[in-house]
Design a protein around this nucleic acid. Structure first.
Lengths: 228, 228
DNA sequence: GGCGATATTGCCTTGTTTGCAATATTGCGC
DNA sequence: GCGCAATATTGCAAACAAGGCAATATCGCC
């Protein structure tokens, strides 16, 4: 999980050196150093997540997490500003994984449809293990409200990126135009509702996708009252 | 600000005793004790808010806030679990102020329209001072990301109450039906978008109401792409 | 192989959180 | 009014967390 993609930093500098090696599709082009950083990041997050599952959030200390990840407590603080952040980071999706796809899809479909498509694809292609992890996180968030804030913060970040993407694409300004806000919010609301209902249903990944599409469809239809 | 309304607790008990005194419209019917609690709650929140405006969030300590509100630091912790919570609590609207109205409006209009109406009325009837306070909070949230989490948490609470109200009214189950989730989320998204654009616009309360209604209209219309 | 950049760590200070027990205040029946 | 029960407030203390700073270790690159 947490496979990362890195922003291309123009053509600056590295050009000569790397044209020799294979310019891999989603390769970092950023040294081994950065890679190791990601690894410790993930190691800490994993440790936090696992220990929380085992012992409950408030019986886990930063010191313990750090020991588990084989770093100093001080290093923990260099990566995360709280236990909660670490736990949530380990269990949830990395927005960088579908944002590029969303930007591409925007070229071909209206935003709402594009996002629906991208998210559906994304979740349809997740492994059992990844989905399990999402379920576990949902459970933890329900059990510990303090995690909720961390998660909501994470969602807010994704929403902001979606908003920017939409604003950029439609040529509207997120400072004065409402559409990007509503669009991004509708997307995240669909995702969140689908995830929670899916978790409650106890069914498989295909049901999650159904729920997602249902949510998007309701938004497209102007949120008709179900009963009538 | 923060005028509270209390749930009517049926006809239990107090009947005899209070029929003598005036059964005030939004009166607590809950002793002086409860009232004082609200007062210290507000006093602490006010202190937190004002000090943060003056000195910046991270130059304010709980001890200081407590002194300002004339309570012990320990008492602060009895009311709020963090500075952030206190600050946000002081600056933002109390959901109890429009939830009852929303429940009533649900009897007469479809949910989306009902919520739009209730929120419009609510903000239209706010004083300059109250609106100023909202603006100040928006500014603070922008300046200090850690406040954002507190605010989002507060919004989440309101959203949950909206959701329950909608689920209850439409007879749907929030555990299995998606409509209440989407409906509540759309409402809060409209509110948030309207507030932020309004803050950026620097215009008056009537513009906020316009923005609110615009947002709700876009949702009703199925979020059409603006350009075409 | 050495140098510059940067990641990691330890130390330390300040602030936060929470349980517990003591104290003060309030509501209410008499 | 008076006193009792309920509960709000406080002080104390211990455990934990956050973050600046400087020393050290490690990496990438020439």
């Amino acid at each position: 999980m947490q496979t990362r993609q890195y922003r291309r930093i123009g053509e600056i500098g590295y050009g000569m050196a790397m044209s020799a090696t294979e310019t891999a599709v989603d390769a970092p082009e950023i040294g081994l150093r950065e890679l190791k950083k990601q690894m410790t990041h993930d190691a800490i997050a994993q440790a936090a997540f696992r220990l929380t599952l085992e012992k409950g959030l408030d019986h886990v200390t930063i010191e313990e997490i750090a020991r588990e990840a084989i770093v100093s407590p001080r290093t923990f603080s260099n990566y995360f500003s709280s236990k909660e952040e670490a736990v949530v980071s380990a269990g949830s999706e990395d927005p960088q994984e579908f944002l590029p796809a969303f930007r591409e899809a925007l070229e071909q479909e209206p935003p709402l449809r594009a996002l629906c498509q991208v998210l559906s694809d994304f979740y349809a292609s997740r492994t059992e293990e990844q989905l399990d992890r999402s379920l576990q996180l949902l459970g933890l968030v329900e059990r510990y409200p303090s995690l909720l804030q961390g998660q909501v913060g994470r969602f807010a970040t994704i929403e902001a990126e979606l908003r920017d993407a939409v604003a950029e694409h439609t040529g509207t300004d997120a400072e004065t135009d409402m559409y990007p806000w509503l669009m991004a919010a509708a997307g995240m609301a669909s995702l969140q509702a689908a995830l929670r209902l899916w978790a409650a249903s106890g069914r498989g990944a295909d049901h999650l996708v159904e729920l997602l599409q249902d949510a998007f469809n309701q938004f497209s239809a102007g949120l008709p009252v179900p009963g009538r």
